[in-house]
């Protein structure tokens, strides 16, 4: 079931970004853990697609967490409290602590941003950016890149299948892999470039490079209240960061 959208995408993305900044400013494992439990977990659960988001977070942050613990748990030359030792590898208390701190920070970083990004509707974000008067070249590049992504994946799948039907064998020795990569990427890139050339002419014919105001076909979902809230949130985090560092310096 899709989640009923409450806030504008811009507001949600900004809130996520500011939360990450807060975590970095405070930088204690207790606060990171609290944000993880109090913000990320409920956010994922109520997102409307908890399994998809949880999977994305696990796939993105999981390997990094494991490798972080392996790396700093086993190899931390600065560590002094040695817990175990095998040859060049030494498990140190400091290394494990470092791994836990960076690991939690990483988990919050990916969790917060991915939850916000995966629930955002890109068309709504693009239309908001248009309504707010952002650079339309930027809006075009962002919207078009996101729209192209599934197209590129689908097309490379089709080309791979077509080449396999002609006798391409995926895998094997390195030269054969490189040849396989070229057999797929040359038609892919050529096709995309020809599409791009056509799109250039279509855009020019519709006055893409002309100055003047633009009309978005999607209604503006942004409100004055949210605009104020965004400024207030940003100012609040900035103020908090200044106060935090001032107190930290005073101590």
């Amino acid at each position: 079931m899709p989640r009923r959208r409450v806030f504008n995408p811009l507001t949600e993305l900004l809130a996520a970004a500011l939360l990450v900044v807060l975590v970095l400013v405070v930088n204690t494992w207790q606060f990171s853990l609290a944000v993880l439990v109090a913000a990320v977990v409920p956010g994922v659960l109520f997102s409307g697609k908890p399994r998809q988001i949880a999977l994305a977070i696990a796939v993105t942050a999981g390997p990094l967490l494991v490798s972080s613990f392996l790396l700093h748990g086993l190899f931390f030359p600065e560590g002094t409290t040695v817990l175990a030792e095998w040859g060049p590898a030494r498990v140190t208390a400091e290394g494990l602590q470092f791994a836990a701190l960076t690991g939690l920070r990483l988990a919050v970083f990916t969790g917060v941003l991915l939850t916000a990004a995966l629930t955002v509707s890109i068309p709504e974000l693009v239309s908001t950016l248009t309504h707010r008067g952002w650079n339309r070249r930027l809006v075009f590049v962002v919207g078009s890149a996101v729209g192209l992504l599934p197209h590129v994946a689908e097309r490379s799948r089709q080309i791979t299948r077509a080449q396999q039907a002609r006798g391409l064998v995926v895998g094997g020795s390195v030269p054969s892999r490189v040849r396989g990569l070229l057999m797929v990427s040359v038609p892919l890139v050529t096709g995309l470039l020809i599409d791009a050339a056509e799109r250039t002419q279509l855009l020019e014919a519709r006055g893409f490079s002309s100055p003047g105001p633009r009309t978005s076909y999607l209604p503006d979902t942004d409100t004055a209240g949210q605009r104020t809230a965004r400024w207030l949130m940003a100012a609040g985090v900035l103020g908090f960061a200044c106060a935090w560092y001032a107190v930290g310096a005073g101590r």
Partner: peptide, 9 residues
């Protein structure tokens, strides 16, 4: 400009 989204994707 039209080339950029292609490169990004």
């Amino acid at each position: 400009l039209v080339l950029m989204p292609l490169g990004i994707a």
